[in-house]
C-alpha cells in the first residue's frame, strides 16, 4: 500500500523513477478464488478426491474449448475442460495445471459436471477393494507388483 500512496503523492506529469516501478505483488496478481468461481461459492457439490479422474463428454468433445456455455466459462474452467478432453485427468493434476486451490478446482469441476460437460470416470477407485480396509485387493496388488517389475523405467 505504501507504493500506492507514494505514487498518488507524485505531482501529475512528473513521474519519479520510483513511481514508474510497476507495483508487483504476488497476492494482487493472483485472481481471487471468489472471482474464479462464479457467485463466489466454495463448496463442491460432487464427491471428488484428489485422484478422482474426470473425462469430457460427447457434447463438448468436438467443440472448441468453452463453447458449450457460449464463452460463459471462466478461463480456468475452460482450461480444466481442455485437460479432461485428452483422455481424462485427475483432480490433483487439474488443480496444479490451472493453478487453483483444490477446493476451488473441485467447485469449478462440479459446475462442469452440472452442465454435462464432464463426468466422473467410473471406477476412479480400484474395484473389489478389501472389504475390511477398503484398500486395493490382493489380486490388484499382485498385478501392480508385476507391472512395476516388468516396467522399463530406464526410459523414464
Amino acid at each position: 500500500m505504501s507504493t500506492d500512496a507514494h505514487s498518488a503523492a507524485q505531482p501529475e506529469g512528473q513521474p519519479s523513477a520510483a513511481a514508474c516501478v510497476p507495483w508487483v505483488d504476488q497476492d494482487v496478481q493472483q485472481v481471487r478464488p471468489y472471482v474464479v468461481v462464479p457467485d463466489g461459492r466454495a463448496c463442491p457439490r460432487y464427491q471428488m478426491r484428489l485422484d478422482t479422474v474426470l473425462t469430457a463428454t460427447h457434447t463438448t468433445a468436438g467443440a472448441a474449448p468453452g463453447t458449450t456455455q457460449a464463452g460463459a466459462l471462466p478461463p480456468e474452467a475452460a482450461h480444466a475442460l481442455r485437460l479432461c478432453r485428452a483422455g481424462g485427468c485427475s483432480v490433483a493434476e487439474i488443480a496444479a495445471t490451472i493453478g487453483q486451490p483444490i477446493l476451488v478446482t473441485k467447485t469449478l469441476l462440479s459446475d462442469l459436471i452440472d452442465t454435462g460437460a464432464l463426468v466422473i470416470a467410473q471406477p476412479a477407485a480400484p474395484p473389489d477393494p478389501d472389504p475390511d480396509t477398503g484398500r486395493p485387493s490382493a489380486h490388484l496388488l499382485q498385478a501392480l507388483l508385476e507391472g512395476l517389475e516388468a516396467h522399463d523405467f530406464a526410459v523414464a
Partner: peptide, 19 residues
C-alpha cells in the same frame, strides 16, 4: 448426461492406484 466417447472411456477407466 452423455457418456464419454469410447476411446476416452478406455483411458479414463484404467485402474487407478495411488502411493
Amino acid at each position: 448426461m452423455t457418456s464419454p466417447s469410447p476411446e476416452l472411456e478406455h483411458s479414463a477407466r484404467r485402474l487407478a492406484l495411488k502411493i
